[in-house]
Amino acid sequence: MPKGLDIDHVARLARLSLAPEERERYAAQLGQVLGHFAALASMGAGPADAGLRAPVADASLRADQPGQPLPPTDFLRNAPASRDGQVAVPRVVDDAS
């Protein structure tokens, strides 16, 4: 496994619960895949603006004008739960807090 790969930390960052057997399997597989990525480490520095060099030919923004949004009912149809025209979520704050 590459030095520094802490599968529990990565899973926490990714908001993914892992079962114990998944934990072991993903740690091994990621180690193997990252080993294959070692070729990247051996290359020299790239162009300083490499991050901006994605092939976006025309990054102009559209006019900032108000538009007609889709009706909320269209979106609520896909919500796991809804109540009174709102997305219903489980209680996450205690009354006492």
């Binding site: 960052l13 990252l34 990525f37 990247l40 290359m43 520095a45 790239g46 162009p47 490499a50 994605a54």
Partner: peptide, 18 residues
Amino acid sequence: SAGFADAYYGKALAARAR
């Protein structure tokens, strides 16, 4: 993730440009 982005993501972007 912090501590690894330069070694992996940064290098990958450079490879992509190349």
